[in-house]
């Protein structure tokens, strides 16, 4: 059984160098997925590289009206940031559905993203919100939309030596609101059977001017369903518009049958949850407009 080395460097460059030197090496943020995978034998990295001690990796900071979230920021810290929770309640709530309080005190959105599970709770909300992430690697830093990171279950687009250093959320648009809902058998401590994130903008008379709908656990990666957003734009989220959105969501859903849910149940829930999330997002947009 190969042994694992533990490193806790104090610069991004050192992390990149350690990751680049060993393709099996894994960056360590919250560790709540990594440690479980190592213990179960699914992963046997040559080393783990703890980047939490690097300045700026933990915490939320404002940049203009947007937010920059360090990759090691635990989910509960997002909730504690009142401005972030007010601007992107859907994202913050999504991140705070993961696991338990104990887990969320370690788990991070960056880890949730890079674990590349199609059922990741924070990812549909981030995609709906139009979040990006900054990736550091051997050739410097690049900023990419969140939806470009996961490419398949457990697989990311990150190149050897690369890791996510921060997640960026734009300023909340005027008249904007977001929400995330998931379906799980239990109220807590569960993995989404289906998740739906919606972010939309209403104008002064309540007409939707833009909308993004993203779904979890209905395909190999979290998917952004552009048709679903389009179905809402130009409407006042009346029943017909919501039904059209639900149909678009179901059409875009291509789930699998597994121990957590069936194809038919997942498709049905995607439509229900997206509609409910859209209504919550609209309420929030109205409340804040």
């Amino acid at each position: 059984m190969p042994s694992t080395a533990f490193h806790a460097p104090d610069s991004v460059e050192d992390v990149v160098a350690l990751l680049a030197a060993d393709p099996t090496a894994r960056p360590l943020g919250g560790g709540t997925d990594l440690i479980v995978q190592m213990r179960s034998g699914r992963l046997a990295p040559g080393s783990v590289v703890d980047f939490k001690r690097i300045a700026g990796m933990t915490g939320v900071r404002r940049e203009g009206d947007g937010f920059v979230i360090g990759a090691a920021t635990p989910c509960t810290a997002l909730k504690a940031d009142a401005a972030l929770a007010a601007a992107w309640p859907g994202v913050v709530e999504a991140a705070n559905l993961i696991g338990s309080v104990q887990v969320r005190n370690r788990a991070t959105m960056a880890g949730n993203l890079c674990n590349a599970s199609p059922a990741a709770d924070s990812v549909p909300a981030l995609i709906a919100a139009g979040a990006t992430c900054v990736v550091a690697g051997p050739s410097g830093k690049r900023e990419v939309p969140v939806q470009e990171i996961p490419v398949a279950p457990g697989k990311t687009s990150l190149a050897p030596g690369e890791f996510v250093v921060e997640i960026r959320l734009p300023a909340r648009p005027e008249g904007g609101g977001d929400a995330y809902l998931r379906s799980t058998p239990r109220t807590e401590m569960d993995i989404a059977v289906v998740g739906a994130g919606v972010s939309l903008v209403l104008d002064a008379d309540g007409t939707c001017t833009s909308a993004r709908v993203a779904l979890g656990a209905v395909g190999p990666t979290v998917v952004l369903v552009e048709e679903a957003g389009k179905a809402l734009v130009g409407t006042k989220l009346d029943d017909d518009a919501l039904a059209a959105m639900s149909r678009a969501v179901q059409a875009a859903s291509n789930p699998i049958d597994d121990k957590r849910g069936s194809v038919s149940y997942r498709k049905a829930m995607a439509g229900v949850l997206a509609r409910r999330a859209a209504l919550i997002a609209a309420t929030r947009a109205g409340a804040k407009a």
């Binding site: 360590l28 560790g31 005190n105």
Partner: peptide, 21 residues
């Protein structure tokens, strides 16, 4: 949660933390 401890002021599952951390 049977392994819950408080680490640096926050409760965590001590099975989900490397000792070295």
């Amino acid at each position: 949660g049977a392994c819950t401890v408080v680490l640096d002021g926050e409760m965590v599952c001590s099975c989900l933390v490397f000792a070295a951390e």
